[in-house]
């Protein structure tokens, strides 16, 4: 019953999204902003897997996001790969970044994990910031959007459908992962890691795989984001960006499959609208953090789901803590 409701709601949401090119002018939003919502949602999902499901404060995922963007940008600019190649190289760079950082991050849990994520993530920021000759340094680097297979150009509408396809594919994969025995184990680790260990499971190994999935997901989001704006800049890698991803995750609903889309939608569209009205966007953003933490700790979708379900929410829609 519940699964069918989710399926129907999901189809409706995707159908509305698919009509994006016709709907976005109605709310005075650029189609590219809706594409941004979709690719950002991938990065939010990557945080959700670690923080919402596994309980690890992932405050460094902008590193993977930025690696994806820079991977795509650098390979398109210097190696002249095509669109698909840029996406693959971008995602692979993020996965590589995850492989390098995971051994360090794995050693710790709780806020120490958060501290390590913030600190190690910042390395990539300074690398991008300093290698001015290659990356353009603080100014960032722009590059022409590569053609698919060297022939077919991708315009904003086509890009939107590419982003939508990537989002739907990742959402289905994400849902499958978190509902699999592997995903259930991650939730169990969040609830009581010692107990999972007593059951004979190597929790480090589970977290290692979760980290890699998360890095790949964020990297794909970053690669597509880079290709969307045809630009890569160091702030994509900064810990502020990581914090924004966490905010979006909380805003949508930690530990919910669709929460990432809700959070990303509110943040990206809200930012687009508010920053045209005022130059003090950051003041509102900070206020959003404070309000969200105090009033909406379960997030919008998390609160809604808890209301809808008269019985206690299922493990995966249960809010954090």
């Amino acid at each position: 019953m519940k699964a069918r409701a989710e399926l129907i709601a999901g189809i409706v949401v995707v159908a509305i999204l698919a009509a994006g090119p016709y709907l976005s002018p109605l709310i005075h939003v650029d189609l590219s902003i809706v594409s941004e919502v979709l690719v950002t949602a991938l990065a939010v999902m990557s945080v959700n897997l670690l923080l919402g499901y596994t309980g690890l404060p992932a405050f460094g995922n902008a590193a993977y996001f930025g690696l994806g963007a820079y991977g795509a940008a650098l390979s398109a600019k210097y190696l002249h790969v095509d669109f698909i190649g840029a996406v693959i190289i971008g995602t692979a760079s993020a996965l590589l970044g995850g492989l390098i950082l995971a051994p360090f991050l794995l050693r710790r849990r709780g806020i120490y994990f958060g501290l390590l994520s913030i600190a190690f993530g910042q390395v990539f920021y300074f690398v991008a910031y300093r290698f001015t000759d290659v990356t353009g340094g603080e100014d960032g680097m722009n590059f022409p959007r590569p053609l698919v297979l060297g022939h077919y150009a991708i315009n904003e509408t086509t890009f939107f459908y590419v982003a939508l396809a990537a989002f739907v594919g990742c959402l289905i994969a994400f849902r499958t992962v978190v509902r699999s025995p592997f995903g259930r184990t991650l939730v169990a680790i969040r609830q009581n890691e010692a107990r999972v260990r007593y059951l004979g499971l190597n929790t480090d190994r589970f977290i290692f795989v979760a980290l890699l999935i998360s890095a790949t997901l964020a990297g794909l989001g970053g690669a597509l984001f880079g290709l969307l704006i045809n630009f890569a800049y160091p702030l994509e890698l900064d810990w502020h960006q990581s914090g924004f991803f966490v905010l979006m995750m909380i805003l949508g609903g930690a530990g919910t499959v669709w929460g990432s889309l809700v959070g990303s939608f509110i943040y990206v569209i809200g930012k687009d609208i508010i920053s045209t009205q005022t130059s003090y966007w950051q003041l509102y953003l900070g206020g959003l953090f404070v309000a969200c933490v105090l009033a909406f700790p379960r997030g919008i979708l998390g609160t809604l789901l808890a209301r809808l379900n008269a019985r206690p929410a299922a493990a995966d829609s249960e809010p954090h803590g």
Partner: peptide
């Protein structure tokens, strides 16, 4: 991490 987010928001403001 909630207090981290809270203080992050405060620092932005």
């Amino acid at each position: 991490f909630y207090s981290l987010l809270m203080t992050f928001g405060l620092s932005l403001m």
